[in-house]
Amino acid sequence: MEARVLIVEDSSAMRLVLKKVLKMAGMEIGRCFEAAHGREALEILDKEGIDVIFTDIHMPVMDGLAFLEELNRDELLKRIPVILVTTEGRPEIIRKALALGAAAHIRKPFQPETIRRILEKTLGKEYARGMDQALEGRDF
């Protein structure tokens, strides 16, 4: 099943890398949207249907925690699984993000295997299949 993905991350390099690693991890991406911060992500969510969101925490304009709070205020948006991808390791910040509705936390640096495990756990196997084939033919 192809997923419509939203990556919220202020680093253009990390957005590019994450998109590649998601494909390496076997995720079948139908369309991938990118936002540099939470405010931009909300504008995209206003127009597009999204299956899963990957977000950093530390970003300018609107950070990941504020973004999660905004999602929580909307009955539809709060149902979208949100996966944190961040260097942030402070337990209280991660706890807060999970309490705000984040489904999982991936710490940078990450392995494709870690991403796949989280994807399977969060979205189910239909979104994360074919990892072996993806790794065999990887151009990363």
Partner: peptide, 20 residues
């Protein structure tokens, strides 16, 4: 921009990993 962001992100990850 990607070149610069790539180096900054690597630095960010090393810093975060070190602090952890």
């Amino acid at each position: 921009e990607q070149y610069r962001d790539g180096l900054l992100e690597i630095t960010n990850m090393i810093g975060g990993n070190f602090l952890q």
